[in-house]
Design a protein around this nucleic acid. Structure first.
Length: 273
DNA sequence: AACGAAAGCAACCGCATTTAT
DNA sequence: CATAAATGCGGTTGCTTTCGT
């Protein structure tokens, strides 16, 4: 027997997720968890493939996700791990809390890979490129001007984007603890305790309250709705700006929402900050 | 100011692996 | 043990934004 599609192709919506869909998915998962992704969209009232729901959740909606560019340390860690593991993005992501394989993969392909190439390093083997053995001197100089700290992976200077973009948000800025708002407090790590699935967003720092919350299920059920009652601006102000990029899809993050709304959101433990 | 090219990112596709029967 | 189904993973695509001319 041939392999069946993961879901019915007919009537399945594709493309960028809308805020309404996000709301349904987050609300459902925080309340019920996911016993199996195949049935999640049906139970959540979504016209989406279960696969798509899983991807959306793991890459975008999980409360424990960091957002923003990778820090200098994270980038070095990615390079080191890639040298050891190759394109095992999920394995690499497992070593970077709050980061997803997709995010790391994209960052590698768009930033790190190019940097290594300009440095004359094969991004696959992590060895000096054959043939030219070294990039032209002016290229090296340009590279050093752009990424001086990459030459010495032990350096601790904050890395900037190519072209000298505004500094990325740093991990310590993301994880600075702060008292969570009442509705969001229940959000931290309430998923897996209600879930038989594998995805866990339980945060050690709030696991006790999370278990209590999950036991009641009340707040976990209620929080997504207030999030939307904020409206987009309110959500942004609350620091989950990356959660609902609108319906534009694609490059909706050309402007980092954290640049506009710094200091809010969930840290890697799912704590509100 | 307008246009085209390049960059960046979210999402999709298909294969591989794991789990259940 | 064999087969089917579900899930996970990596590669790729397409859309949006940004930058340069």
């Amino acid at each position: 027997m041939g392999r069946q599609p993961c879901c019915d192709k007919v009537g399945v919506k594709k493309g960028p997720w809308t805020a309404e869909e996000d709301q349904k998915l987050v609300g459902f998962l925080l309340t019920h968890g996911h016993c199996c992704w195949r049935v999640v969209p049906k139970l959540a009232g979504l016209l989406r493939c279960g696969k798509s729901c899983r991807l959306r959740w793991t890459n975008y909606l999980r409360p424990d996700l960091k957002r923003g560019l990778l820090s200098d340390d994270e980038e070095r860690l990615v390079i080191d791990l890639h040298a050891q593991l190759g394109n095992r993005w999920s394995k690499i992501a497992a070593r970077l809390p709050g980061r997803t394989d997709n995010e790391i993969k994209n960052h590698w392909n768009t930033h790190i890979r190019k940097k290594l190439l300009r440095m004359g390093i094969d991004p696959v083997t992590h060895l000096p490129l054959q043939g030219t053995t070294a990039p032209p001197a002016e290229q090296v100089q340009q590279e050093q001007e752009e990424q001086p700290q990459l030459q010495e992976l032990g350096g601790g200077e904050a890395m900037q984007e190519e072209g000298g973009d505004t500094p990325m948000i740093q991990p310590h800025e993301i994880t600075a603890p702060a008292p969570p708002p009442p509705t969001a407090a229940s959000n931290c790590g309430s998923v897996s305790s209600a879930s038989a699935g594998s995805v866990s967003v339980v945060s050690p720092s709030c696991s006790s309250s999370a278990s209590a919350t999950a036991a009641s299920g009340v707040e976990a059920t209620e929080w997504p709705e207030p999030m939307y009652l904020f409206g987009m601006d309110g959500i942004m102000d609350a620091g989950w700006g990356g959660l609902f990029p609108g319906t534009g899809g694609g490059g909706g993050f050309g402007a980092d929402p954290f640049d506009q709304y710094p200091g809010g959101g969930f840290d890697q433990d799912g704590d509100w900050m």
